[in-house]
Nucleic acid binder design. Structure first.
Lengths: 269, 269
DNA sequence: CGCGATTTTGAGCACCTTCAATCCGTGTGG
DNA sequence: CCACACGGATTGAAGGTGCTCAAAATCGCG
């Protein structure tokens, strides 16, 4: 494979795109997206898809690989805001001004590149697309809220368990190659720590704890969930959880502190 | 004012709506919103605008008062996800299934009620509206991310300072009656605690700390910021901050841990 | 094989929590 | 008008969860 002539493939055109149906693109016809996109971008592990503070004029639709949204404080503390898997979209929340967070490739990432202004223009003519976009952002917002309550109100063990459960569910539903009880998890413990608001050292101890409890196995970039129910319990769920999709997880009854009742119907004027 | 005949006022119709220009509604003409809305809802302090786990078929546009988004864990721990001020919109992130968070009035709240399906229908014909919606959600998502890094990576003192700074900026820009260096802050210390991921007791100590440092005054529902720069510094900003709008704050150079460079341009196919 | 990055483990400390008591401001009823 | 109750704010003391510092072990890779 040295001096061989490489055939020019229009790599990953929309028609043959494996994730077309599972992301933003499904809201419109193949032709439209085909015209909007300018190409595919490949990013090597550790480098930014777009840096914090920089401007980013493109939307990126994740095609393969893992990335993360992060925010750095000025003294180096890092918070990982979200892990991005195939089908996730980056870059729309950077309208005006400079956003406070960046995106970084964890594994080798390939992403579909769509200039934002071009996309917005198209969305003006195809409201379906605009609404799909807002639904997508709303889902991401909901996930951000879940992370917030996790980091704000769960114990270290619960946070780690919750994160693993989330990633397990998301990866399993997105990446078909993964088997039923395990996924490939290309994260370092520092990634997990920065997403959970913990130190790497303490994250390690929590992982050991979960491992010794027979709940998970985690080594060589693979996470095996030996007992999903126990993992859910460790994450703080007392009753059932719907595994396949976590982001909009089914809520479970019982409001411990909800002394107040809904008063829908008090519409006056 | 006992048996007097009360004139029927179409209270807060869109034309005279004080916040029309500062929220979602500005994306369309007065008439449209006038048709979409079904009324104004008033909610008394402490009761839910919509409860966690319940379904919510309406959008609410905050007209006056303070509310908060919250999530309860099953054992009663509460995380406040966001404080809602006039102009903020609630309820779109509850498409299908039941959302994991609810909204509660802190003061008496009045909100413009818009049935979601009706709104979506209208948005299909007015892409501007749909795009405005997505921009709005994206802004909320960005705020959620800021809260996440705050709770995950800042110290208790920094968190409290950051929250006060954010609320100060938002309230001052939204609620015109507030003067330059102070706002009315109708929160209990428990609210601040639940938003910061702290206990009320420790929140109290941090507030005392900030007070004794001459940075703030906080009593009887009013927050006075005696020294904005010191407050920003206490929140963890080493250099300048743009006060008027915090959500998309201007980013400040210097990536402590960013050893990686952006590689925009690696577009291949 | 040797180097760097990551994981693992230990020991001590500190930040924040928990528990508990007191104080204060406001509203309510006698 | 005062006593009382109640929610919220305040303070103290003690304990624990998670952090810091440090060193060793392991893994990945050229």
């Amino acid at each position: 494979m040295s001096a061989q002539i490489k055939p020019i493939v229009r790599s990953l055109a929309c028609q043959s795109c494996p994730i077309r149906e599972h992301t933003l693109c499904s809201a419109t016809d193949v032709r439209t997206m085909e015209c909007l996109r300018t190409g595919t971008r490949h990013v090597t592990p550790g480098v930014d898809v777009f840096p914090q503070g920089g401007d980013c004029t493109n939307l990126y639709i994740m095609l393969s690989g893992w990335a993360c949204l992060y925010e750095l404080l000025e003294d180096g503390r890092r918070q990982i805001l979200q892990f991005l898997l195939p089908g996730d979209v980056l870059g729309f929340n950077r309208h005006d001004g400079v956003a406070t967070f960046g995106a970084q490739a964890i594994t080798t990432v390939s992403a579909c590149v769509v200039p934002r202004d071009r996309f917005m223009e198209a969305a003006l003519k195809r409201p379906q697309l605009a609404l799909e976009l807002s639904a997508l952002i709303a889902a991401q917002e909901a996930m951000a809220y879940e992370h917030l309550t996790s980091v704000g109100r769960r114990t270290a063990r619960e946070r780690v368990a919750y994160l693993l459960l989330e990633l397990f569910c998301r990866a399993r539903s997105r990446i078909p190659s993964d088997s039923l009880d395990q996924i490939t998890l290309p994260l370092t413990q520092s990634h997990i720590a920065d997403a959970s608001g913990l130190t790497p050292v303490h994250t390690n101890r929590m992982l050991r704890n979960l491992r010794e409890a027979g709940i998970i196995e985690l080594n060589q970039r693979t996470l095996r969930v030996r007992n999903p129910d126990l993992l859910a319990a460790a994450a703080g769920f007392e009753r059932e959880v719907t595994l396949p999709y976590l982001p909009h997880r089914r809520w479970i009854l019982g409001h411990a502190r909800a002394k107040d009742v809904d008063n829908d119907g008090m519409v006056t004027a």
